[in-house]
Nucleic acid binder design. Structure first.
Lengths: 207, 207
DNA sequence: TGTGGTCGATACGTTACCGTTCCAACCATA
DNA sequence: TATGGTTGGAACGGTAACGTATCGACCACA
């Protein structure tokens, strides 16, 4: 069907100018996210993306078979940086470290705009839903470590409600920054850590 | 400029078929939100909205001067139902009632899809930001009542960190339902209420 | 050093939506 | 009951993005 010539007889490998430029591929992804942040996912125009990347539309359609596939490929490049958190000696310190890192992420104006869009789109398209659960899983693991350490230290009951705990850790800060659009100070973060630790302790006691 | 004839000489008030049909206006709003939920805010087409409402485009442009104004008017119809919560006798019961009501709201598939879109758009356009803060304020007042009652009962320190408390109440449930896409059971809601109460208590103690 | 073959950019036809204009339908008023 | 005047719907040009086809430019290989 496609690439008929090379299927019939591939004399030699592509070389020279006939090889895809990885830097342009990256520029296309970057432009895609910039457009996303500015206009919203549903309004992304591949023509503007190409122009912003300093390329033509063919540069996109040679790499991806459709608008949709390009979008999927672009979002798939996210969520790979999942560096683990250091041990800070106590649950409260670990929680504060977790919140501090989350604040760094949510401070990026682009991420702040794209994240809620992902959640909205997750209800509409399957690949976006997959991406969302994948990102959630990565975040989950990071938080699991915090809980496991606390249990090992004896600060938390092993029978702690993990699902609830994994909600309690990121939710208040996400709410404040993404939903309300604010940015808490370091002191407010510390107060939040104290409250979250209390909530975590309470969610292990049987009622 | 416009409506010259009636300015020059208004013989009699509009009547008969010459009066706007309120039911169609409502149908247009409804269609707007259905389109929003299906396609995303940025991809709303007024042509499809009109078609879905069983009307022509002129029905929209007679009522609103532009696409943008229509959107603003539509979103302004939200957030007017702010019925106050009954007193359930204890902070924990009040929190549970608050969560139960929030769960009802977030169960609507349309609201679940539209809310994150609003947060994303709030970072892009001023009127959407206004809407968001307005909705936030209504929610705030509802939660304030819960806190005030608890303080009156002696369950909470009057010096409680209100900003933090107002984040702690809705955030975990919002996270679970909108970000993760799940729906907690009544039992999970009760456990969450316990955890939140513990967090609220902790956020009033001085450190 | 010649060259094969893919690359990126431009131009093109198609589709969809915007916002406007026009006209028949409609019904409470007088 | 006749009618005035606005309504809703359909048709119209204009714009923008999609996805495809074509072209010269390019450069590692042989």
């Amino acid at each position: 069907m496609e690439h008929n010539r090379s299927v019939v007889k591939s004399r030699r490998k592509p070389s020279g100018a006939a090889v895809q430029r990885a830097d342009l591929t990256e520029a296309l992804y970057r432009a895609f996210f910039e457009e996303w942040a500015e206009r919203g996912f549903a309004a992304i125009s591949l023509e503007r993306v190409a122009a912003r990347a300093g390329a033509g539309k063919a540069a996109i359609y040679r790499r991806f078979s459709s608008h949709h596939e390009f979008a999927v490929a672009a979002v798939s490049t996210i969520g790979l940086t999942i560096a683990m958190l250091d041990d800070h000696g106590s649950l409260e310190a670990d929680v504060l470290a977790f919140l501090t890192r989350l604040r760094v992420v949510l401070r990026h104006p682009m991420i702040r705009r794209i994240l809620p869009d992902i959640h909205a789109e997750a209800a509409r398209s399957a690949p976006m839903r997959d991406l969302n659960t994948q990102v959630a899983k990565a975040r989950r693991e990071q938080a699991q470590v915090v809980l496991d350490r606390a249990i090992a230290r004896g600060e938390l009951d092993p029978a702690v409600d993990r699902d609830l705990a994994l909600d309690l850790l990121p939710a208040p800060l996400y709410w404040r920054m993404v939903v309300l659009g604010g940015t808490p100070t370091r002191g407010q973060l510390a107060a939040e850590a104290v409250a979250i630790v209390a909530a975590l302790r309470a969610s292990s006691r049987r009622c």
